[in-house]
Design a protein around this nucleic acid. Structure first.
Length: 567
RNA sequence: CGGGGCGUAGCGUAGCUUGGUAGCGCGCUUGGUUCGGGACCAAGAGGUCGUGGGUUCAAAUCCCACCGCCCCGACCA
């Protein structure tokens, strides 16, 4: 490609809309442009990168034995009703209507479609295992699109769905995808770690997320350097730090606490009750009934765990009016002492706690000397708390660490939820009808692209890994007069590299060197070959790896040196 | 959806408090000088000041509504 013929609108200044470095660079390097919030056009250079990421994904899926298909983006709501997700996934749908006013759904994911397909084709266990994948645009009505491609209304995703005859076989399929993902991110030059994850609305059995560490990531990963335990913070278990030794249990007593409405307030004089000695009382509306959730004062509730404990995701924090009606007190003065008519769920760290302080369900009053079990009747004990940095690892006891990360991939073991609902069944060896055991596996392709930039950049711009760079080499003549020795050599190196299969761009723009250098560094071509009169007088050209020093090489060796530097 | 911020030329922005000719930098066009790290000089083009309404002799500026974008939040009582 000749730069003068290309469309590479680089920007000297950062558009005001971009907040994080990868988003800024996507715009500045001329890779994407925004149509409107959450919707982007890939410009030629950005599309080249996208295609390269897709190619790597495709190669690794094929290698793992998955079969590529392409499913419709537009889906009938009926299959979602069949799977039971029409209601639960309501929030993410973009909907459309045809001329007959019938409703359609712009696919946010494709479990229903693929399972419907398989249901129609599958009859015998001999047909399994099968794993189908596609690379397709998904549509999700995100609550808040942000950070460019990171969270968009429309994005490219690779999704794969495996069908197996048994749990064990499904496990093998899962492992294959897990391994494929590890290779994919490695080949993309992206640091990503597999972490245990919550299954959320997918309703699966267990799952791993592939997380690319980055400060701007929207997720938090809890990990242990000692034993390699790693989990999404929504899932992460930590060992409960017990409350230190107690004096003899005191008797519960109500005391006035005018104006006190937070855990923090109670830790200050005159009360000076440490947060670990407090019981935080949260009120939730669970399927239209109120429930109390008790946490230790220094702990935070993890809603993903709460969903697991409640067995439903249909809950929300109660409104203050609802709380007052039920407990005759406002948030900040709530407690579970002597509450008999509401279900009480408690985090297991409170088990056996005595001498605790908690709200009295009377504004301006708290109880102290409260003993769980004696003064509060807990209906269900569960692990409900958010793991924190420094807490002992649940496996090995070493301190846990937390870091932010971008979720780039997710593998789920689904079980038979969808195959049962949509009748994707087969006859086993004994002639018995069985639902296929499924798994599903996603990679956010466009998000991966941006995550690579987020991890690989410096003050001058992007540092593309060779595997996904829009062009591997930028040949930069400092003079472009057609009959000059400099340009002639540039043309020759450009042609020779192209002939050797290297993706190369020739910066034939009649611009000053500084402009060309800045642009090539902003875009981040892995290797630049600079050709100028001065060095050429010595029979040399300049080889510069992005982010590295400039090294002179003999002009006649340039092509070989470039090839060597690429691998 | 709640809160906050912002909409002025392709991009970045000043002007708004205190109403009175819309300004600057980058980019763009033309000419010239330059030519190894985002050149310089000169002359230009380019604006429904987000949209609609209101107040006023007069609105980018004040008021109302709407639209759009960005950020934070939407569990921590």
């Amino acid at each position: 490609m000749r730069w003068s013929q290309a469309f590479i609108p680089t920007l000297k200044e950062t558009p005001a809309e971009a907040e994080i470095i990868s988003h800024k660079l996507l715009l500045r390097a001329g890779l994407i442009r925004k149509l409107t919030g959450g919707l982007y056009t890939f410009l030629p250079l950005g599309l080249r990168v996208l295609r390269k990421v897709e190619k790597i994904v495709r190669e690794e899926m094929d290698r793992a034995g998955a079969l590529e298909v392409l499913m419709p983006a537009l889906q009938p709501p009926e299959i979602w009703q069949q799977s039971g997700r029409y209601e639960t996934a309501q929030g993410v749908f973009f909907k459309a209507r045809d001329r007959a006013k019938k409703e359609w759904i712009l696919g946010p994911t494709h479990e229903e479609v693929i399972t419907t397909l398989v249901a129609g084709e599958l009859s015998s266990y001999r047909q399994l295992p099968k794993n189908f994948y596609q690379i397709q645009t998904k549509f999700r009505d995100e609550i808040r699109p942000r950070f460019g491609l990171m969270r968009a209304k429309e994005f490219v995703m690779k999704d794969a769905y495996s069908f197996d005859i048994s749990d064990e076989a499904a496990q093998a399929s899962y492992k294959k995808m897990y391994d494929a993902y590890t290779r994919i991110f490695e080949r993309c030059g992206l640091k990503a770690m597999a972490v245990e994850a919550d299954t959320g609305v997918m309703g699966g059995k267990f799952s791993h997320e592939f997380m690319a560490p980055a400060e701007t990531g929207e997720n938090e990963v809890v990990y242990c350097e000692a034993c390699n335990y790693a989990a999404n913070v929504e899932k992460a278990a930590s060992r409960a730090s017990q409350i230190e030794g107690d004096a003899a249990p005191q008797t519960a007593e109500k005391f006035p606490t005018p104006g006190v409405t937070t855990i923090e307030d109670l830790t200050r004089p005159p009360f000076q009750v440490p947060a670990v000695r407090q019981i935080k009382t949260l009120v939730y509306m669970v399927e239209n009934k109120l429930a109390l959730i008790l946490m230790r004062g220094d702990h935070q509730l993890n809603e993903a765990k709460l969903a697991g404990a409640l067995g439903t995701a249909a809950f929300r924090p109660a409104e203050p009016e609802e709380i007052f009606t039920a407990l005759q007190a406002h948030p900040g003065s709530l407690g579970a002492v002597q509450v008999k008519d509401l279900p009480i769920h408690a985090d297991e760290t409170l088990l056996g706690a005595v001498n605790m302080t908690t709200g009295a369900n009377q504004d301006g009053f708290h109880w102290r000397g409260v003993g769980i079990g004696r003064d509060i009747t807990v209906n269900k004990w569960s692990d409900l708390r958010l793991a924190r940095s420094g807490e002992p690892c649940a496996r090995c006891g070493q301190p846990l660490k937390i870091r932010r990360a971008i979720e780039v991939g997710h593998v789920f073991k689904l079980g038979t939820k969808y195959s049962q609902a949509l009748n994707a069944c087969f006859l086993d060896e004994s002639g018995k009808k069985q639902p296929a055991v499924m798994g599903c596996y996603g990679i956010g392709v466009t998000r991966t692209l941006q995550a690579i930039i987020e991890q690989s950049n410096d003050k001058d711009g992007i540092l593309w890994p060779v595997s996904v760079a829009p062009y591997a080499v930028c040949v930069t003549p400092l003079t472009v007069a057609p009959d000059s020795a400099v340009m002639k050599l540039a043309e020759q190196i450009y042609a020779d590299l192209g002939a050797r299969g290297v993706e190369v761009i020739l910066d034939d723009r009649d611009d000053r060197p500084g402009v060309k250098f800045k642009d090539s560094e902003l875009i981040g071509f892995p290797v630049r070959v600079g050709i100028g009169e001065k060095s050429l007088a010595r029979g040399e050209v300049e080889l510069k790896k992005r982010g590295g020093p400039m090294t002179p090489v003999k002009a006649e060796e340039a092509v070989e040196k470039v090839l060597a530097s690429l691998y």
